Lab assay of single mutants.
Amino acid sequence: KITVTFNGEEKARRYYKKMQKHNLKVEIRVENNQWVVHVE
């Protein structure tokens, strides 16, 4: 499981979509004013 933190929504969403293309289970959320993407 990987957790990647971004300081911008745009970058986070781009990464999220990229990971989805690989058929990975991805989850995006905001934690402590940071955009966090969890990849299983």
Results as ranks from 00 to 15, higher is better:
K1I: 12
K1W: 15
K1R: 12
K1V: 13
K1T: 14
K1F: 14
K1N: 11
K1D: 08
I2G: 04
I2L: 12
I2S: 06
I2Q: 07
I2K: 08
I2A: 05
I2E: 04
I2P: 03
I2R: 09
I2T: 08
T3F: 07
T3M: 08
T3V: 11
T3G: 03
T3E: 06
T3Y: 06
T3P: 02
T3A: 08
T3W: 05
T3I: 12
V4N: 03
V4M: 11
V4P: 01
V4I: 12
V4E: 03
V4A: 06
V4K: 10
V4G: 02
V4F: 09
V4L: 11
T5V: 14
T5D: 02
T5N: 06
T5P: 04
T5K: 12
T5C: 12
F6E: 01
F6V: 01
F6Y: 02
F6P: 01
F6N: 01
F6H: 01
F6I: 02
F6K: 01
N7G: 08
N7M: 10
N7A: 11
N7P: 08
N7V: 10
N7T: 13
N7E: 14
G8Y: 12
G8S: 15
G8K: 15
G8I: 14
G8L: 14
G8W: 09
G8T: 15
G8F: 11
G8Q: 15
G8R: 14
E9W: 12
E9S: 05
E9D: 02
E9M: 11
E9K: 09
E9L: 11
E9Q: 06
E9Y: 14
E9N: 03
E9P: 08
E9T: 02
E9C: 07
E9A: 08
E10T: 08
E10K: 12
E10L: 10
E10P: 04
E10G: 08
E10M: 09
E10H: 10
E10D: 12
E10V: 09
K11F: 12
K11Q: 15
K11H: 14
K11P: 15
K11V: 12
K11G: 15
K11Y: 13
K11E: 15
K11R: 12
K11W: 11
K11C: 14
K11D: 15
K11I: 12
K11S: 15
A12L: 03
A12K: 01
A12S: 02
A12W: 03
A12R: 03
A12Q: 02
A12I: 03
R13G: 03
R13C: 13
R13D: 04
R13H: 08
R13L: 14
R13Q: 09
R13P: 03
R13F: 10
R13M: 14
R14P: 02
R14N: 12
R14G: 05
R14C: 11
R14H: 10
R14M: 11
R14D: 15
R14K: 12
Y15S: 01
Y15K: 02
Y15Q: 02
Y15E: 02
Y15G: 02
Y15C: 05
Y15R: 01
Y15W: 07
Y15I: 02
Y15F: 15
Y16C: 12
Y16A: 15
Y16I: 06
Y16K: 05
Y16R: 03
Y16T: 03
Y16G: 05
Y16M: 14
Y16N: 01
K17R: 11
K17C: 07
K17M: 13
K17L: 14
K17V: 11
K17I: 13
K17A: 13
K17H: 13
K18S: 10
K18H: 13
K18Q: 13
K18M: 14
K18G: 04
K18F: 14
K18T: 09
K18W: 15
M19L: 09
M19A: 07
M19V: 06
M19K: 03
M19Y: 03
M19W: 05
M19F: 04
M19G: 02
M19P: 01
M19C: 06
Q20I: 13
Q20F: 05
Q20G: 04
Q20C: 13
Q20S: 08
Q20M: 12
Q20T: 07
Q20R: 10
Q20P: 02
Q20N: 05
Q20H: 05
K21N: 10
K21L: 13
K21A: 14
K21R: 10
K21S: 13
K21Y: 08
K21I: 09
K21W: 08
K21F: 09
K21P: 02
K21C: 07
K21D: 12
K21H: 10
K21Q: 13
K21M: 13
H22D: 07
H22S: 09
H22L: 15
H22E: 10
H22M: 15
H22P: 04
N23K: 09
N23W: 09
N23V: 04
N23A: 10
N23D: 07
N23S: 07
N23M: 07
N23Y: 12
N23H: 12
L24K: 08
L24P: 04
L24S: 06
L24E: 04
L24W: 10
L24T: 05
L24M: 11
L24I: 09
L24G: 04
L24F: 14
L24Q: 06
K25Q: 09
K25A: 08
K25R: 11
K25P: 04
K25F: 08
K25L: 09
K25D: 05
K25Y: 10
K25S: 10
K25N: 10
K25T: 08
V26H: 00
V26N: 00
V26P: 03
V26K: 00
V26I: 06
V26M: 04
E27W: 09
E27A: 07
E27N: 07
E27M: 07
E27P: 00
E27Q: 08
E27K: 05
E27F: 09
E27R: 04
E27Y: 10
I28Y: 01
I28T: 00
I28L: 11
I28N: 00
I28R: 00
I28V: 04
I28E: 00
I28W: 02
I28Q: 00
R29K: 11
R29L: 12
R29I: 11
R29D: 06
R29A: 12
R29W: 12
R29S: 11
R29C: 08
R29H: 12
R29T: 13
V30M: 14
V30I: 12
V30R: 13
V30N: 11
V30L: 14
V30S: 07
V30F: 15
V30Q: 14
E31T: 06
E31Q: 07
E31M: 07
E31L: 09
E31P: 01
E31D: 06
E31H: 08
E31C: 08
E31N: 05
E31Y: 07
N32E: 07
N32K: 07
N32T: 03
N32S: 06
N32M: 06
N32V: 05
N32A: 07
N32F: 06
N33E: 09
N33P: 01
N33D: 11
N33Y: 06
N33C: 03
N33K: 06
N33W: 05
Q34P: 00
Q34V: 13
Q34C: 06
Q34D: 03
Q34N: 08
Q34K: 14
W35C: 00
W35N: 00
W35I: 03
W35E: 00
W35S: 00
W35K: 00
W35H: 01
W35G: 00
W35Q: 01
W35T: 01
W35M: 01
W35F: 04
V36I: 11
V36N: 02
V36Q: 05
V36A: 03
V36R: 02
V36G: 01
V36T: 07
V36H: 05
V36K: 04
V36L: 06
V36Y: 06
V36F: 07
V36W: 03
V37S: 00
V37Q: 00
V37M: 02
V37T: 00
V37D: 00
V37R: 00
V37F: 02
V37H: 00
V37W: 00
H38P: 00
H38F: 11
H38N: 09
H38V: 15
H38T: 15
H38M: 14
H38R: 09
H38W: 09
H38S: 15
H38A: 10
V39A: 03
V39P: 00
V39L: 07
V39K: 01
V39I: 12
V39Y: 05
E40C: 10
E40Q: 11
E40F: 15
E40T: 12
E40K: 06
E40M: 13
E40W: 15
E40P: 05
E40V: 11
E40G: 11
E40N: 11
